[in-house]
Design a protein around this nucleic acid. Sequence first.
DNA 1: AACGATACCGCAAACGTTTGCGGTAATTAT
DNA 2: ATAATTACCGCAAACGTTTGCGGTATCGTT
Lengths: 336, 336
Amino acid sequence: MKHNITSINDIARALGVSASTVSRALKDHPDISRETRARVQAFARSVNYRPNALALGLKQQRSFTLGIILPEIVHHFFSTIISGIEDLAYSKGYRLMICQSNEEFERERINLQALLDHRVDGLLISMSKNTFEFDHFKHAVEHGLPLVFLDRVCKDIETDRVVTDDFQGAHLVTTHLIRTGRQRILHLAAPQHLAIGRKRLQGYSEALADHNIGLSDELILQCDTPTQVLANREKILSLAPTIDGIFAVNDFTAIAVMQLLQENGFVVPADIAVAGFGDDPIALIARPKLTTVEQKGYDMGKEAVRMLIERLENPDKEKGFETKTFSATLKLRESA
Amino acid sequence: MKHNITSINDIARALGVSASTVSRALKDHPDISRETRARVQAFARSVNYRPNALALGLKQQRSFTLGIILPEIVHHFFSTIISGIEDLAYSKGYRLMICQSNEEFERERINLQALLDHRVDGLLISMSKNTFEFDHFKHAVEHGLPLVFLDRVCKDIETDRVVTDDFQGAHLVTTHLIRTGRQRILHLAAPQHLAIGRKRLQGYSEALADHNIGLSDELILQCDTPTQVLANREKILSLAPTIDGIFAVNDFTAIAVMQLLQENGFVVPADIAVAGFGDDPIALIARPKLTTVEQKGYDMGKEAVRMLIERLENPDKEKGFETKTFSATLKLRESA
DNA sequence: AACGATACCGCAAACGTTTGCGGTAATTAT
DNA sequence: ATAATTACCGCAAACGTTTGCGGTATCGTT
């Protein structure tokens, strides 16, 4: 609804000049006399004039808005990403339109379409777990829209990416488990169509191989949420007497399995060492405190939006796509 | 930058009709013949025509965008609020522009101004902890923009609100502590210019009074973050031998103080019972599991956006402002 | 005095969409 | 045959902003 907001046309009428004079005066354009500029600026201040971003966006073909699609906002890692994005975007004068896909392909597609309709200047996307088809991303990129994939990247689309060195992190933490005497390590894995799932499993596998420990299929379980820990409780408990370590693909899953073990008489880390991936705040709250791999959500978010804004503000600079890989850091605590 | 996106004008040229014909045909307007409507619609589909939301917004004076300002996105409670908002907004066809104030008044003010510039249809705001002056809210409301305050409300502005029954929750949990034998209960409070801080302290005070227990100023400490628990560690540890319960204003603070006590030889809940407010996932991760008051962020977010959209979609319905108060539920676990 | 240059402002089109209302041809009623 | 009505489409203005370019008055040079 019309909110009696003052426009350039209103100012023009009030001062008896044209809208183009007002527009130029507000920009301190030398074609407009100093006197007229001063009159217009003073009046604009007095009526709290603010340019309409919709009109500006239509005229300039820029909306100063970035579109973000993440799987789940409540997931701590994703909320730190958003926080990092928002902090830098705010300082650079960009607004954020944030959507969550809730791991649903269709919702991701519809949200992406809506962001395109709103003429966002660029996109930051972490792909849904259930996205197996990428035309919606292709469509966006074909429009020349800069897009940075974050964490959950789509390998079919050539574009900038910001990821954690999942392989390295998994390798580090598995190596740590082995070097502290663990030999039979269960890996609670993410779905393998996700790069992070694959790379963390690869890191785990390679670390075992590096220590001449054979890979055992029965020690790899797809289980990447607390809900799935519950769903797999019988399996996990039947394996428990035969293992001495667990590397879970994220902290929530690690803590869920740790608590399951503790509730069933196992002592962590004495009986079974447990490690996660993420270094969420819960890692410090859990007892024992969780050994995990730090994942720098905030910094990743900041870097992703920095890369995006660099493309937006240098559109003619033909720059090859980059993948920025954040190194993983092992956080040694009590659980492993 | 122009992304070669098809406009109504492009379709009009291609089909040899006028833009107004195309616009009407796309809306199945009876003034346009069936044959022309069919031709236009088929062509629009074939070129993936999508209306430009900026142009639509300018013309219709509606942007189908809601502005949200919250203190901190990484704070679990706020991320659940966003999730609730986003789920309902998505289903009703609204986009979200989300900003965080980082508890800074100036950033809240600038973010609010930017949302107004973008002509968001309505606002959902949880006030910054450091907001003591409300002209920026008044300015928004004076423009006739619907605004719903969430959780951290501003009492000087008449508008819709969604809150937790902080008083009731605090009363419930303090009563529980008393009824399980605790007599000297430390309250770790939020700043008193925040309604939630005041009401939770009031609930605590009233519960003590209800049980003929005198209120002691030395048992009220402003301390509402883990960082402040560290800052107040000497004070808390000097009080510890003289108290038998703690009611902290939020879960993070409760768990931080619980861990401080445990690290200094106290047993929870045997020596000192500890309760929080919020029922974040960390409540279940902490050991002992935290007794706390459930705060329904997701449902509050959903309700807030429902109220906002109801006003947007019924602008002529003169409806008094409401405050929806979500009841608090005590979650009894092991820490108290 | 005449001509050229400059200061200062406004016209009009454009971005993309919607819609009130008018024009014209075809159809229907008298 | 003529008048009235209707179907179907387009013109033009509007939402709010920007900007290329032209008009006019004033000033400076010859």
